[in-house]
Design a protein around this nucleic acid. Structure first.
Lengths: 244, 244
DNA sequence: CGCCTCATTGAAGAGTATCAAAAACTGTGG
DNA sequence: CCACAGTTTTTGATACTCTTCAATGAGGCG
């Protein structure tokens, strides 16, 4: 009950207070839409809120629509045979999931968990299909996004296929530096989206190995671990050479 | 020169001799098209032939169109940091690649090599985009195929994330059994699409490890290696248990 | 049938996983 | 602002598995 009212508040609030900050404006898929088309979508959106650590969808779920991240961060993962978490994607604002449900009536193929407080906008199936008919350009956008996702997965596989652990960790650090880093005069400060264990589950090793390798990079003066949630990269070139 | 005439012969031959066996009829993307639409496509197709071991496209290539496999098998791979091959996909009849070029003007992100004599049909970019306008249902089909590809990559990552090598090899054998296996009274005979080294490059280990593990599975009476190109699976359930 | 490629097998070595314990961090409450 | 408790991370020692290198063996194609 409480959630429902909260959701409606959220929706209203967005519409009135900051039109240019609502889900649809942030989502690449809808970036080409005319304002009136955009408004139609906004009408259809249902919003939900998840706390850090809360599961958003589970593998096998039949979703009622497309889930779009309005704010927050989400990890998507599967379990390996040994019941270890294998992270597949890190989703952020503007990313979506549940597209397989939408396009081929398939349940989601991974678990999705909020890494921090996260707000999700849901566009119901039927609404979305009507939208597709009216604005076919959206289908191009979706294909685009699917290709980006494929790119990501291919690169992840390439990374997991390299034996040299230093290179694998360097690759992750570079990826995070690009996405979550801010330049400072003496280096790049990266606000890490994942814990050490999370990183481990992303590249398929144990957390201890991550610890050891990061300490080594720190000893070499290439990075500095600032608490548990930030890493400062002093020598990006050295990382890239490790990576090459 | 020789190649060109050969290509044209191929194209003609298909049109005349076996209309229902031409590329377009085998390709899921085009399965919903009307005969006249199909004919339009056929006009546009250019066909090419590749020998076993020949490179079809290289990473970074700007392709002139969508490459559809008319017959044969193709492996798509990237190189890891250590210059090891990491196989991403095994393509067969009806599969396509070059979609990133088509949809987002990106060069191909992997190398593709013919595993056996392979015939490729190329649909030029412009033709394809015209086709998309006339038959928008194709865009659904493409999204569908992209989702299938994403599924495959996600599963591959999940597999590469499992530490237990037996489980990883079992998973591959089961995959191959489904795709390339034929039932016999005492088991499933699988005609392997990859050499031992190929399997190794698919799951990210060395060929020696594959050899040892397969020998072990053979000693246990679960499989039998029939020459280098076939494997007979006696006990699929045992494999699946290994896998679980 | 023979050559060349691919696959197997062995022994040594490198590296990560594992288990256990200590240390550091985070954020909550006084 | 500090102390505390729970969680996360680090560090150490050991065991195990895969890789590596090298040599032998088998397979398949002309």
């Amino acid at each position: 009950m409480k959630n429902t009212t909260q959701s409606m508040n959220c929706q209203r609030k967005n519409c009135n207070k900051c039109q240019h900050n609502i889900c649809t404006y942030r989502v690449p898929i809808f970036s080409d839409l005319e304002p009136d088309e955009m408004m139609k979508i906004i009408e259809l959106i249902v919003s939900r809120k998840y706390a850090r650590g809360e599961m958003i969808v589970m593998e096998g779920n039949q979703l009622e629509g497309l889930y779009i991240i309005h704010s927050g961060r989400v990890k998507a993962f599967r379990y390996t045979q040994e019941a270890k978490e294998q992270i597949l994607y890190l989703f952020a604002e503007g990313d979506f999931f549940g597209e397989k449900n939408l396009l081929r009536k398939q349940p989601v193929t991974y678990h999705a968990e909020a890494l921090e407080e996260t707000q999700i906008c849901v566009i119901p199936h039927r609404s979305f299909h009507e939208l597709l008919k009216e604005a076919p350009s959206i289908s191009y956008k979706i294909m685009d996004q699917l290709c980006i996702r494929i790119d990501h997965l291919e690169t992840l596989i390439q990374n997991m296929g390299t034996r040299d652990m230093e290179a694998r960790i360097s690759a992750i650090l570079i990826e995070f530096a690009k996405k979550y880093g801010s330049k400072q005069n003496d280096g790049i400060l990266v606000s890490m989206p994942l814990s050490r264990e999370g990183i481990a589950n992303y590249i398929g090793v144990t957390r201890e190995t991550i610890s050891r390798k990061l300490s080594r990079l720190q000893d070499d003066g290439i990075i500095e671990q600032v608490g548990n949630k930030k890493i400062k990269i002093y020598d990006l070139k050295a990382l890239e050479q490790e990576y090459l």
